[in-house]
Design a protein around this nucleic acid. Sequence first.
DNA 1: GTCCATCATAGATTTTATCTATGCTGTTGG
DNA 2: CCAACAGCATAGATAAAATCTATGATGGAC
Lengths: 292, 292
Amino acid sequence: MMDRYHLRYFLAVVDHGNFSRAAAHCNVAQPTLSVGIAKLESALGTKLFVRTNQRVELTVAGARFLNYARRIEGEFNAAQRAMAQTAPAALFRVGVLGSIPGALIARAVAASLAVDPSLRIEIVDGSERELSAHVARGRVDCAVTLIDRGSDRFEEELLFEEGYALALWADHPRAAEAVVQGEDLAADTMIVRRHCEALGETSRHFTERGVRPRFSYRSTNDERVLALVAARLGITIMPDCFEAPGVARPRLSGFTLRRKIGVAYTLESHASGVSTHPFLQTLREMAPALNV
Amino acid sequence: MMDRYHLRYFLAVVDHGNFSRAAAHCNVAQPTLSVGIAKLESALGTKLFVRTNQRVELTVAGARFLNYARRIEGEFNAAQRAMAQTAPAALFRVGVLGSIPGALIARAVAASLAVDPSLRIEIVDGSERELSAHVARGRVDCAVTLIDRGSDRFEEELLFEEGYALALWADHPRAAEAVVQGEDLAADTMIVRRHCEALGETSRHFTERGVRPRFSYRSTNDERVLALVAARLGITIMPDCFEAPGVARPRLSGFTLRRKIGVAYTLESHASGVSTHPFLQTLREMAPALNV
DNA sequence: GTCCATCATAGATTTTATCTATGCTGTTGG
DNA sequence: CCAACAGCATAGATAAAATCTATGATGGAC
């Protein structure tokens, strides 16, 4: 039975000229799109594309079907838009990267609720990978996550850019310095932030300098990590935007990795005006202060 | 994400005025349709129906959506039809009830292939229940099965109507009689045709007459059953249309159950002209001879 | 009151879209 | 001419979703 997603796959192939790019644009894997088109062709009883491995081109039947497909997909969108006007108080669902301070998000939520108490906001956190999946499948309206990672699957908007720095307890021997040499930390015990995107880079950094750190704690909970740093259990490396009383944040010499945090949307959700949501407006106001 | 089947459910509810009938018309269970409509409403962000337990009626938003829904579903069908014209040599898939003689179907296949050797026909057999599911899900274009069973889920066409009769080996003491009394078979061993729709009725018939038969064989394979009847392993009851050398078919007195065999289509497949297929034409020509 | 018709909900089941991994086939660059 | 590559297809496993059965809730009819 011909179904809506078949039309989307078909149109994507027409618009992008090959299956692979079309798949990326639909946020699915290439084989998925491949069997999707095959299903459509079988439902219609006609081949729609001639596959050469240089490019795909429409058959005569495919060209004829294109008219219908465009019209139908257009009507779906028109219906959706028309209904959206009547729709009351939409729930705003946003995914947030686990390695972004909860306090930051909490402030943004509080501020936007202060603007409009009737807002309904839902936060879900996860890894970069999980968030991509959520955005792609429409389980969230957008995600606050790492951006500029080369896969142009989503519409992206930069919020802030930052580096990474050490987290030491306030009276650690090196706490007062602006920049610390990795070699000077050979005797320290480290805490592993298991979900951190910089994990690989960090261990490489120390290995290259002949430092083989011991580990006292592994966690995905950054708030707890900060508390334990303050409690002198160990030191760690984390993005600049983290801060806590009793924790100093000197730079680690030669550690130049940076990350860009921004908002990722699907094309549709971006087009449907999600990006003007007060929560995101608030985040945009807060963001410049976090650039380092 | 709004999908095509949502539209079909929605339109069915509008056209039939309540969820239960709409579900029957869509060949799905009532809860399925219930959650389907709920999904659609959530996708659109608006309630589409006001549910009273007397009837459902459209909300304002629902009435507005109706225009889009009808147009889109219409376009889907138009596209399907338009493409079907180009489509080459369609495969004809037909489900056949297990308790219909294979020889009958084989004759029909042979005859229609004689008319047009380019025909591509695919036969699948199964129980009445299985065939319903196949028709409903579009896995077959139609099914040759029991009809007139009260559930007007499908378009039905009567082929022939018949009763049930005994199957005895040719020189069985009662083989020459036209009608046999159940009581006279008390000493006989019976074969159970496990897939037979008359199974319950048969055992009730004997129980009511104080006959408690012994069983020598249970099978779903009627050809083998007939061979074993001829081989004097046991006797059985089967629809009139079965025949084999060495097997006599006297009536069983008081056993009045009858069955109607016909073709069941979905509305769409019927509309798309499946019923004019040579295979079905052949069956129609053969059918009158089978009325008993 | 009980019965009946209607829709909603919950949990299990089945189906199906999707993914990962891999194969195949031309094309390109060395 | 061969290796690397880019592009689509296939297979098996996985995950998601639609669907089913069974049951509950509600209101009208008798």
